[in-house]
Structure formats: C-alpha cells, structure tokens
C-alpha cells in the first residue's frame, strides 16, 4: 500500500557491481517506502538476482559504485549478518541445502542471532517451539519439516515455502523475494502469496523479483520496474506489468529508446 510521507526503507542510487570483473549492475536506481510492495520484472540474465545478492551482501559480488541507504544507514558498509539482523531478508531463488543441520535449529539460531543483536534475551527451545508452531500456519507447513535437515530433499515448492517460513519468523523490514513463484504449482503459489500478503505491513517493504505476471495477480504490487541489461529501464504501476505481459519486453526497450531519442 502506498502511504503518504512514509519512511524510506531502501534507497538505491546509481548502483554498479561486478562479478569476476564482469560488470553486471550498470547503475540501478530504486526507492522503496514503508508499506509498499514493488515488483522487479525482466528477462533472464538481466541482473535481478545479482541485485538481490548485492543488497544482501554476498561476498562474491563487488560493488564498484553508487550507494544503498537502508533505513538511514549505509547498507554497503554492513556485513551480511548485520544486514540480516537489521531487517534485510532475501528469499533465495535457489535455497541451499544444509545436510545435518535441522531446520528447527537453523531457525532458532537465526531468530536468536537477531534477538541478541537487539539486546533481547534469547528464546529457549521450549518457547521457540511455541513461536514456530504459530509461524508454520502462515505457510501451512507440516511440523515434520522442522526436524528435517534444512532444505535437504525438499521439493522445489517446499524449499520456497521454507523461505517464507523463515521470513515469517524473522519479520524483516525489507523482504526481497527472488523468483519465489518459480517451481510452485498453483495451490502452493496461493499459499505462498497469502503468506507474503499477511506479512506485508505498513512499516515494512517488499521487493518481489519475478519474470512472470502470474505472481502479480496474487500479490498486487504498488510499483513495477523493468530490469534489462543491469539497469531499471522503466518503472510504473501495476498496469505496466499487464502491458508487459501483453506486449513483451521488446516493447519496453523500444519505448525507452524513443524516450531518450536513440
């Protein structure tokens, strides 16, 4: 929802970044305010996942220019853990499997790391169990997933749901969802979308990355951006997404070209 004069959660200016000395992000500009849901669309390889990893602080990505302000702080100076504890959450496009580490331990340590950083007391296993049972409802997940190793042997859809479970638990200020819809059947998509909608609040912001329109019928964005070649080439409201669906990315490219008069 768009709220007048609400707090700026994330502000990205002229962000450029390299992987293995190849420039992937070529000047990204973006601003998210509290309460808003933004969608970034764009063809494969346009740099969407790169942007999400740079925001989360993945060590393999080198920021070469620009700035990122998260709730008034210079995000790029923060360690990935600090960013996470400060409220940046990334639902991964390909969630990792962690053999031997139980989901519930992972969730508890993650939750308590955040609490510790805020100077709050850590939750013991019993209190945590109560809390997590509540959160399971958000994504209608079976409690048996708690005792299994993190994502190990989970189906694609189960992994995505597990990501949203973590998000429900950690209650981030900025949630970045990277292709959370891919690999989901329609029922799972509805469950995940419903979870994300429940978690979107007036005091947080959501950045959804997708290259399908499909997700946007379940999670309605306030703004839509089109990414191409490492830049955001067009921004608009949700109608832009519909337009895209109908006319393809080629159309945006042409629009942009005519605007700058090339």
């Amino acid at each position: 929802m768009i709220i007048e004069n609400s707090e700026v959660i994330l502000s990205v200016r002229d962000l450029t970044a390299n992987v293995d000395s190849n420039q992937i992000l070529k000047g990204v500009n973006l601003e998210l305010k509290a309460g808003e849901i933004h969608a970034i669309m764009g063809p494969n390889g346009s740099g969407k996942s790169t942007l999400s990893k740079v925001l989360a602080g993945h060590p393999a990505y080198e920021v070469t220019g620009g700035e990122v302000i998260f709730q008034g702080q210079n995000l790029l100076e923060m360690e990935p853990q600090e960013r996470a504890r400060g409220g940046v959450f990334l639902a991964f496009q390909y969630p990792l499997e962690i053999p031997g580490v139980s989901n519930v331990d992972f969730l508890r340590v993650a939750y308590n790391s955040g609490r510790k950083a805020k100077g709050l007391e850590e939750l013991d296993a019993f209190d945590f169990d109560e809390l997590i049972q509540e959160k399971l409802d958000v994504v209608k997940m079976n409690p048996s997933f708690l005792s299994r190793s993190v994502n190990e042997g989970f189906s694609g859809g189960e992994k995505k749901r597990n990501e949203i479970l973590q998000m429900a638990l950690l209650e981030p200020k900025l949630a970045i969802l990277d292709e959370t819809d891919s690999g989901l059947d329609i029922d799972a998509l509805k469950i995940v979308a419903n979870g994300v909608n429940q978690l979107a609040k007036p005091d947080n912001a959501t950045l959804m990355i997708t290259h399908y329109q499909r997700l946007l019928s379940y999670i309605v964005p306030d703004f839509v951006h089109v990414m191409e070649g490492g830049r955001i080439i067009s921004s608009g409201t949700k109608e832009l997404a519909l337009e895209l669906e109908e006319r393809g990315y080629e159309w945006v490219r042409e629009e942009e070209a005519s605007e700058v008069g090339v």
């Binding site: 360690e79 960013r83 991964f92 969630p95 992972f106």
Partner: peptide, 8 residues
C-alpha cells in the same frame, strides 16, 4: 552466505 543472510 545462506547462514549469514539469516543473521547467523
């Protein structure tokens, strides 16, 4: 990185 991103 997956752990780090969860604050661990």
């Amino acid at each position: 990185f997956y752990f780090s991103q969860r604050g661990i």
